[in-house]
C-alpha cells in the first residue's frame, strides 16, 4: 500500500514535468504524451482508488449492515472476474439493461438498504469530496483487466438498447449541430492535438473503451464511463443528462458491442 502510494507520487511528479512542455510541435507532443503514459502506467493514481473500492466492497454498511459481496453483475452473486467487460447486459430481476453503475447502485439499495438519492449524491468526486461509486467502479473494473470486452447484445432488450445507442450517437442538435459522430465517426482525425477514435469501428471503440474507468490527468480524478459520456453531452452543448439514464446506458451498449473482442487495460490513465 505504501509502495503504491510512493509510486503514485512519483507518477504525479512525472505528470507535472510533462504537462509543462506540452505546447511544442504536434508529433513531438504526441511522442511526449506516449512517453508519459508509459511512465505513468506503473504509478496510476487510480490504483489507490482501486484499493479503497476493494475495502468498500467488503465492508458492512448501510441500514441493512451488509456488504456488497452478494451483488450480482451478471455472472452470479459476488462473481466479479470479467463482469465489467460484459456490461451493460439485461438483468432478469429488474427487467432492464443495466451498466456497471446502475447495477452497483441497485445493489447498494437492495442489499445495503441505502436510498438511491443518497448513494448517488456523490456519483463523481470533486476536489475535497470523494465518491464511493468511483472507488467501487474502479475496483470492479480492474477485475476485468486482461479480459476481452464481450457485449454481443443478443437479448432482444440489449439489441434494442444497441439501436437506441446508435440513434443517439448520430442524433444532431444544439447550437453547434453536434452529434457524437461529428468527432467520432471518422478514422485518423484530431481535435486540436487530441487524437479522436472512430467509435463506429472495433479498433476505435476498443481503444476508447478498454481503459475505463480511467485516471484523467487534466481533471486530477478517476472518471467512470457515465462521467465520460455525461461530459461528452456537455461538450456538445446539450443540457445535462440524468445519472444512470437510459440513453447513457444505451450509448455504452453501442460502444461496448463495437469494442467487443478488445482486451481490457483498466484502470487506465488519460490526458
Amino acid at each position: 500500500m505504501i509502495q503504491r502510494f510512493i509510486r503514485t507520487l512519483v507518477g504525479a511528479a512525472v505528470v507535472a514535468a510533462f504537462a509543462g512542455s506540452a505546447a511544442a510541435q504536434d508529433s513531438k507532443v504526441a511522442d511526449e504524451l506516449a512517453k508519459y503514459r508509459e511512465a505513468l502506467a506503473d504509478g496510476n493514481p487510480a490504483d489507490l482508488l482501486e484499493v479503497k473500492g476493494a475495502a468498500l466492497w467488503a465492508e458492512k454498511r448501510g441500514p441493512k449492515n451488509a456488504s456488497l459481496e452478494q451483488c450480482d453483475f451478471g455472472l452470479g452473486p459476488g462473481k466479479l472476474d470479467g463482469a465489467y467487460a460484459q456490461l451493460p447486459r439485461y438483468f432478469k430481476d429488474t427487467g432492464k439493461v443495466m451498466d456497471v453503475e446502475s447495477r452497483l447502485v441497485h445493489c447498494m439499495v437492495t442489499l445495503q438498504g441505502f436510498k438511491q438519492e443518497d448513494v448517488t449524491k456523490q456519483w463523481f468526486s470533486k476536489p475535497g469530496t470523494e465518491s464511493d461509486i468511483e472507488a467501487l467502479v474502479t475496483f470492479i473494473g480492474a477485475k476485468s483487466n486482461g479480459m476481452p470486452i464481450n457485449v454481443p447484445a443478443t437479448h432482444p432488450e440489449e439489441k434494442k438498447m444497441y439501436q437506441i445507442g446508435e440513434y443517439v450517437f448520430y442524433r444532431r442538435s444544439g447550437p453547434q449541430d453536434f452529434s457524437c459522430a461529428i468527432c467520432h465517426g471518422q478514422d485518423g482525425k484530431r481535435i486540436r492535438l487530441q487524437e479522436l477514435g472512430n467509435l463506429t469501428t472495433k479498433e476505435g471503440a476498443g481503444t476508447a473503451m478498454k481503459t475505463w474507468p480511467s485516471y484523467r490527468v487534466s481533471q486530477g480524478a478517476v472518471w467512470t464511463m457515465e462521467r465520460r459520456l455525461i461530459d461528452c453531452m456537455r461538450q456538445a452543448r446539450f443540457p445535462e443528462p440524468k445519472y444512470l439514464s437510459d440513453s447513457i446506458i444505451a450509448l455504452q451498449v453501442y460502444l461496448q458491442k463495437n469494442a467487443t473482442g478488445t482486451v481490457m487495460e483498466t484502470p487506465g490513465i488519460k490526458r
Binding site: 437506441i164 440513434y167 443517439v168 442524433r171 443540457p239 443528462p241 439514464s245 437510459d246 440513453s247 444505451a250
Partner: peptide
Amino acid sequence: EAEQVFRNSFRPDNPKYWMSRLEQ
C-alpha cells in the same frame, strides 16, 4: 422510441431554455 428515451434522459431541473437545445 429512441427519441423518447433520449428526451427522458435529462435532469428534470434543466431549465426549459436549455432543453430547447434538443429540438431538431
